[in-house]
Design a protein around this nucleic acid. Structure first.
Lengths: 139, 139
DNA sequence: GTAACTGCAAAATATTTGCATCCTT
DNA sequence: AAGGATGCAAATATTTTGCAGTTAC
């Protein structure tokens, strides 16, 4: 895993630093999305808040992670699967937010269906967020 | 229109005040979504920022408006069409955010297709936001 | 008249920026 | 050695809270 992380950073021409490795580990360790606060907590507040902001920002720019828009507007970040180029994100999978535990996951296996828009609208990105109860919190 | 607004407020047991009427007018006047800042500007900063927050909050609680999650995580509010009960929002139409002009509209005529989720996930609300170029900004 | 709403001040949060220092390559 | 990354301090921006005065009903 160590090596994979280093490769990922190298691939994107980012220098390998402790904070970046640690934060990437977090993302790889769990199958969900993380909020800024989660990251601070799970790194034991080891890194400066600003560093976390900047790290996330550079991961975003490089197409390593993407944000998940939620109805309650808490910003969550998740790993991009693959074909996200620099500056372009192509996540066409559905995101699921659990109303109970707050966990946010990418349902990679669920593809967003193509939508026919009214004349004149040119779609570029489609986001689909479903909220409800996740497997663990299911009544 | 005046009467309709008053009815709407009465229906939700909210007292009829200037700020509420004015803000509702804004929502009714345009077919799109509004960010907090838009509302401040378009009311000519007539109302205190805090009042706007609280007004939006109470409209949310009553199911008069709902938030739209956008890819850039800016909070937008839009009128709920009808069957949003207190605490429950049932918007099943697509939202479109223009990358150029920032306008957000509800595409009421475009219905969100039903999505089959993996076993164990129980959906309650589905949000679908498409971004791109709108009719006006079309290249 | 009473309860609810507003505006102001201020607190609490969240995010961004500048700069000197330190680390990676 | 050079450029980039970090941490700290501080500037901004955003949202929430308390409270006294005002308004709706």
């Amino acid at each position: 895993m160590e090596a994979a992380i280093q490769d990922l950073l190298k691939k994107h021409r980012l220098s390998i630093t402790e904070s970046r490795v640690k934060i990437l580990e977090l993302f790889l360790a769990q199958q969900g999305a993380l909020a800024h606060g989660d990251i601070e907590k799970r790194t034991g507040e080891k890194f400066d808040r600003v560093t976390v902001y900047r790290t996330l920002q550079s991961f975003m720019n490089k197409g390593i992670i993407h944000t998940i828009p939620t109805a309650d507007n808490s910003i969550r970040y998740a790993l991009c699967k693959d074909n996200c180029a620099e500056g372009h994100h192509h996540d066409n999978h559905v995101h699921f937010v659990c109303d109970d535990c707050g966990n946010t996951v990418c349902l990679d296996e669920v593809t967003i269906p193509t939508i026919k828009l009214p004349l004149g609208f040119t779609p570029k990105q489609v986001e689909m967020v479903i909220s409800g109860k996740c497997r663990e919190c299911k009544g």
